[in-house]
Amino acid sequence: MTAGRAWGGGARFPASLATPVLLAFAVFIVVPCALLLVKGLEPTSAAGDWPDFTNVLGLFDSKIGQQALNRTIRVSLIVTVICLVAGYPVALFIARCAPRWRGLLLAVVIFPFLISAVVRAFGWTVLLGDSGLANKGLIALGLIDRPIALVQNEIGIIVGETHLLMPYMILSLLAVLQRIDPNLRHAAESLGASPVSVFWRIVIPLTLPGLLTGTLLVFSLAMTAFATPFLLGGGRTPILTTLLYDYAFTLFDWRLAASIGIVLLILGILFVTIHRFVSSRGMRSYG
């Protein structure tokens, strides 16, 4: 997505066009984020000076903050691994199947994208509830005797976020899988390579960029998801985003809520920096 050549007055700032846009982003994004920073670094005591980092740092000394941070990282890692392991065969399958089926399968992957996270989480509360299909299935298989709790805990968050984010992984992988020249595989096979070594030595290396994009995308979106952990995790298993909401609306401690916001902001910037570093695709796939 490179821009066309310079048009008009060279290095002149296109004021009439750019000013309204810049003004909107300055007033509604930059200033609010700056004020969030001000809020989060407010001194805890009346005598203290600004900036006071004890809130942001103290957040992870408190038991609940520490737990929320650990849970956020743990859940995001597990979700990323499941999306990777599950998404790869799905992408491979879709890339290889007959074109008339491909459209339908792509629709199955893309359609959940368009449905509100609330609706999807609701479907999972029905499926994972005590009398839901998941518990019934596990009992029928003889794996458990009586229903186990699959929602209002970390399992619920993991299942819901996996469902939320797997399409991102599949689409990232499909983008690179479809660009692999089939002649490469034929050449390797005609020279005597086994299907396994074709997979490990040709397919995997060529899909590495998509794998990296998908992994970073899923991990960063898992860290910042809100509705899914809110509905499927319940009040006793907060992650950073739901803890921010709790501090803002249940405990009314906006200074602490703002400090969690600062941490999430830093994480967001960190991921984009890593993403820019590992791929030249820039921010195109962030969404």
Binding site: P32, K39, A248
Partner: peptide
């Protein structure tokens, strides 16, 4: 796209 949604929401509310 970089700033998490909860941060945008809370910052604007603030």
């Amino acid at each position: 796209l970089i700033i998490p949604g909860v941060v945008v929401g809370f910052a604007l509310l603030n």
